[in-house]
């Protein structure tokens, strides 16, 4: 029993670690889409953030500078998105596609130019990364049944950005649902004309929402390359931005349900790697791919309205044109 409990704690811990980048990106998407700007470009910003973090950490030796570089990179791409979609009222989906393609090209081109390692950054050493933090009393609690492993495996021993990811959810919830800024931001995604007639700038609100999304994606990218991983590799975001988008829809554009969707998709990813090659009773061997595509299948089923209904913010993807 204790054995199984330890196992469970380890699975949950790995779920948490795999969910962290999804949580950052999904919260990013939450800000942007609640303000009425579709964000297909989560993937690109995540990838760019990952590259910037690893490149800066490798060049300066400091994970903190890496984190800042990632945030700057994420926000720079977000600025492009806002400039196209808000200022010039361009198609938000086209802009997102452009950002994703741009990021997957730029990261490799700049990576080769800077490090000549085929698009990778050099492997990062321990002090260049955000290491695992062992919380106090881990030793003391170690002998307590159930709580000990829970504390040691799940609560303690994660890196800083995992804790930040968990924190990002209540912060997002607070900002969006308990502040005037959040109220206006949500209003701009539902009825921009009302916000406009109340005398607030629709464009400036949307700019801020998109930039916050860039910031969060940047942190998610830093998590991938300098916290969870030890360096940048080509296409290391591997579709996580899209899974986060799926989680956002799955969570119906609400912070806590979105968090659970991220955790669900994280569980799927961690079981996929655990189940690869394992012969299960009755079902036999499940191909890893089947588990890996589950988030996408589930999202399509949800979108089809077969369980629940995902209703997006009313003004989502519609550029705001002030009436004259």
């Amino acid at each position: 029993m204790a054995e199984a409990w330890l196992d469970l704690m380890q699975i949950l811990a790995s779920t948490l670690r795999l969910s962290a980048p999804l949580i950052f990106c999904a919260m990013a998407g939450l800000f942007s889409e609640r303000a009425g700007v579709v964000d297909i470009g989560l993937e690109g910003k995540l990838l760019m953030g990952a590259f910037a973090a690893a490149a800066a950490a490798s060049a300066t030796g400091s994970p903190w500078l890496g984190l800042f570089a990632a945030i700057a990179a994420g926000m720079a791409l977000a600025l492009v998105h806002a400039f196209a979609c808000v200022t010039h009222r361009g198609d938000q989906i086209v802009s997102g596609v452009a950002i994703n393609i741009l990021a997957s090209g730029l990261t490799v081109v700049l990576g080769i130019a800077m490090f000549s390692q085929g698009g990778q950054t050099p492997p990062l050493s321990r002090p260049e990364r955000f290491g695992d933090i062992t919380l106090p009393f881990t030793e003391t609690f170690a002998d307590i049944p159930y709580f000990g492993p829970f504390y040691a495996e799940l609560l303690s021993g994660q890196n800083l950005l995992v804790y930040l990811a968990i924190l990002a959810v209540p912060i997002t919830g607070f900002v969006l649902f308990s502040t005037t800024f959040g109220l206006r931001l949500r209003a701009v995604g539902e009825a921009p004309e009302a916000v406009d007639s109340a005398g607030y700038s629709v464009a400036w609100l949307r700019y801020r929402a998109v930039l916050i999304a860039g910031l969060l994606c940047g942190i998610g990218g830093a998590y991938l390359s300098i916290a969870h991983g030890g360096g940048f590799v080509r296409e290391m975001s591997a579709g996580r931005g899209y899974i986060a988008l799926a989680a956002l829809i799955f969570g119906k554009w609400k912070p806590v349900p979105t968090l659970f969707a991220c955790l669900l998709f994280g569980v799927l990813e961690s079981t996929a790697s655990r189940l690869s090659g394992v012969d299960l009773p009755v079902i036999g061997e499940i191909p890893v791919e089947v588990i890996l595509v589950a988030p996408y299948v589930l999202t399509v089923i949800l979108l089809a309205g077969f369980f629940g209904r995902a209703i997006p913010p009313r003004a989502l993807s519609i550029p705001y044109v002030k009436e004259r």
Binding site: V80, A84, C85, H88, G90, D91, Q92, V94, S95, V97, A98, I99, N100, I101, L102, A103, S104, G105, L106, V108, V109
Partner: peptide
């Protein structure tokens, strides 16, 4: 890819 992304950005978005 960079050029392609830029073309989508300029001629689309």
């Amino acid at each position: 890819l960079v050029i392609q992304g830029l073309i989508i950005l300029f001629s689309g978005a």
